[in-house]
Amino acid sequence: MASLAEATTRTEAAERRRVRPLIATLPAVAWLLAFFATPLVIFAVYSLLTNELYAVGTPFTLDAYRDALTSTLNRTLARNSLEVGLSTAAVTVMAGLPIAYWLRFVARRSRIAVLFLIAASMFASYLVRIYAWRTVLGSRGLVNSALDRAGLIDQPLGFLLYSRFAVIVALVHIFLPYVVLVLYAGMGPLGEGLLEAAQDLGAKSSLLWRRVIIPIMAAPAFSAFVFVFILSAADYVTPQFLGGKDGVTLGVQIQQNFVGVGNWPLASATSFLMLLAFVAVFAVGSFILRRLKLNDIRLSS
């Protein structure tokens, strides 16, 4: 009897351990259902309805998807969005990795101060940072002025501002702090002992990175990549301030269709197609990680 009671108690305790975390997630789940899933469903329905100028009506139709997919402009803007997103994400992650490594293994006393500075850089307004880049990259900006004073140019370098280059530079600057923090957290399992063991076994720096650090960092780096990619590709503010023709993104067109033209089905359909593109990038990345067996590397202490 005693063992049965103990077993029952253990079962109940296990059940509580299983249920309590689920209960703890309820507020977040409820929030997401109310303010994310529900609007998403409404958008999905809107994308299938008929446009009635700042309103929607029946019958249900796929016209909005057809219009979104057959638009030459949409294809151009989607390509711009993907290129800006992929470039920004790649540069940000590549720049973030060495910084995170330095913070984790090299910086000792200065670590907290540097982490604080990284976090503090996120306090600056998004628009302030965009305008700051204009003062750096403008025709009379810091870069052109310095090059001019050095006698290296006689005309300002035009490609620096109002170009895709400028957009990517600004977005990298904006997202780098987030990526560094994500990668720094991802390096938690990378103990110094592990690195020393690899070095004791003859791994030089490049091999250490290739065979130890990068495999362990692949999953968090991919998370950071997707994070930056989605936000950059969907951004339509930075391209408007810093971009030229090749900086205009699909987000601008979606906003115009929602607010300026009042074609809610078309805007919703375009949004969903963009969402599909994001999911596709995520799926491809996840597939590659799985194939390379890099998606779930766990280290025991």
């Binding site: 100028l53 151009t76 803007l77 023709k245 205009v248 067109q253 033209v261 009042g262």
Partner: peptide, 24 residues
């Protein structure tokens, strides 16, 4: 106008203008 069979509509112009901006 927002709709017309005869005259250029705002949605038509808006689409064209976005194309001009993007060089499409």
């Amino acid at each position: 106008p927002t709709e017309s069979d005869e005259f250029v509509t705002f949605p038509e112009w808006n689409e064209a203008f976005q194309g001009i901006k993007a060089g499409a």
